[in-house]
Amino acid sequence: MISKEQKVKAKEFQAHHHNNKMLLIPNAWNAGSAKVFENQGFKAVATTSAGIAYSLGYADGEIIELDDLLLVTKQIIKRVNLPLSIDMERGYADDPYKVKQNIGNILKAGAVGINLEDGRPDGKLDDIELQLEKIQAISELKKELDLPFVINARTCAFWLKVGSPIENMEMAIKRSNAFLKAGADCVFVPGLLEKNSIINLLSNIDGPLNTIANPLYHDLEGLQKLGVSRLSLGSGPVRASYAKLIQTSNEIIEKGDISSLIEHDFSYAEANRYFAK
């Protein structure tokens, strides 16, 4: 059952993609990380398939199961009041109507946005016609559930480097515009994109653009001025967290040094206060 509160969050999340302020959206991997993002003042939160996979001890790439994702969705909804978008990878099915069913279950759990990608684990892109059928099928849920959730359609042309830089740009633009016509609300073009590439995408895509934080161009104010609608942090936060955990573990094993565990201000009492909010 879709609640009135969920419909309000969905409308709020939609609005974030159509105003003059770029939505900076962090990607959580469990309820705890989502709670941190909420406490620190973000306006919405999305999940990261990579982060959820890592938290379960797997590599990324369609290895986790839909039940895992559904459980994380419910856990985040239980503790966080922000609009929540779920990374559905390729929809956990090839059949468009099975994808629709899977996403319907995620929305019924409380999500107000989904991310659907066309990049396959083998490094290729799904056939564009299949991806359009998936988006069209998903779009039917808006009326069926009376929920204006956000469909963020991702093309992995740059992410997977399927062709030359020029070919990747052409594919990203073609697919993005086709996705928007099929019912997507926003298109996501992740990858190592420098400023001119982002300008080119913005000039040729007829709808809101979502990019990902990357080392080639990460000037938040600059991205805002260019007209990027949504910037994802992606797996950056979870990788930074695990990098620190790995470093700390190495210091303990190799040097017998536990100083990094105690030389900080996040005490047991402070942690309890923080997560009690």
Rank of each mutant, 00 (worst) to 15 (best):
I262L: 13
I262A: 10
S33I: 06
A243C: 08
K181L: 15
E65Y: 09
E65K: 15
V80F: 08
E221I: 01
M22E: 02
M171D: 10
S260C: 11
L192E: 14
K134I: 11
S55K: 00
S176A: 15
K100Q: 10
A137I: 04
K108A: 06
G104D: 02
F42V: 11
G256Y: 08
I205E: 06
D67S: 15
L107K: 02
Q14W: 10
Q131N: 01
G183T: 07
S85V: 14
L209C: 09
Y97P: 05
A184W: 11
D118K: 00
G110A: 05
W159T: 09
A15C: 07
I135L: 14
A276F: 11
H18A: 09
A243F: 09
A50N: 03
I103M: 08
L245Q: 06
A31Y: 03
A46V: 11
E221S: 11
E38L: 13
A172D: 03
L226F: 01
G234W: 00
I253N: 10
K174E: 13
I212C: 02
N200G: 03
L125N: 04
E133D: 15
A240M: 07
V72G: 02
G163C: 09
N19C: 14
P26I: 01
A109D: 08
P121L: 02
I138M: 03
I166N: 05
G104N: 12
V238C: 00
V99S: 02
A178V: 13
S241H: 00
D122S: 03
A34Y: 13
K161A: 13
K7P: 13
D185T: 03
P83N: 12
F179R: 06
C186V: 13
